[in-house]
Design a protein around this nucleic acid. Sequence first.
DNA 1: ATGGTAGCACGGCTA
Length: 269
Amino acid sequence: MKIASFNINGIKARGPALAQWLDAAQPDLAVLQEIKSTDETFPRALIEDKGYHLETHGQKGFNGVAILSKLPLEDVTRGLPGDDDDPQARWIEATVSTPRGALRVVGLYLPNGNPVELDSSGAPVAGGKYAYKLAWMARMDMRLRALLALEMPLAVMGDYNIIPQAEDAARPEAWREDALFRLPSRKMFRILVNLGFTDAFRARHAGSGHYSFWDYQAGAFQRNDGIRIDHILLNCHAADLLQDCRIDADVRAGEKPSDHVPIWAQLAL
DNA sequence: ATGGTAGCACGGCTA
């Protein structure tokens, strides 16, 4: 089965571009980020008319995630555990069952974290966006440990807002102190990966020049001034099934594109 | 330091 992740940057503005990609790429399952819509105002017909089941975890104006799947979505959960007072919609999970076995899927939209606010000792300022990002990743660590304990194929995918290495940015020096690339962010990402995950894209492709996001400003896409921040992490059971992984960069050249493009993996499921 | 672009929703925040 083909699974994918796509930060669509607003479902209401992305209908044609999303429909065109679904028709061309034919994913069996996809997680969407930044739907920027509530569950009630999500244009469900756009997706359901193509034969997909749909589960959303929305929020007015910002954030919001969704899962669409040709197979039924089972055991759906919404929200990242660990802080009942967190109102931001950034996490959704579901299970799909195939004749060859089941797959647990996480769709996530990790906090951006900018601007980075630090106190005089260099620690993130409590209540600031960067402190929220790191605390959110600590909550993610807890949840991933519980999911790994299920010992079933697991795909954790979405917009991580993390540039893992210098080769994942066209101009890494420009991102050195940015929340997406500064060392504490990358270290926390390594901690998550080292729980036992494989970066599906890096399992199939080496080297620089592979990006999933280009800013709308200053002709970034035309200059390939991008960053790789959308990731598919697979636990060992899912990684054993990995057949292919690609970034659909050409989607960025379409009509009214998102600033992100889809990443997908083919699994032997 | 600013401004460059885009979405949501109609003012200002977020990215």
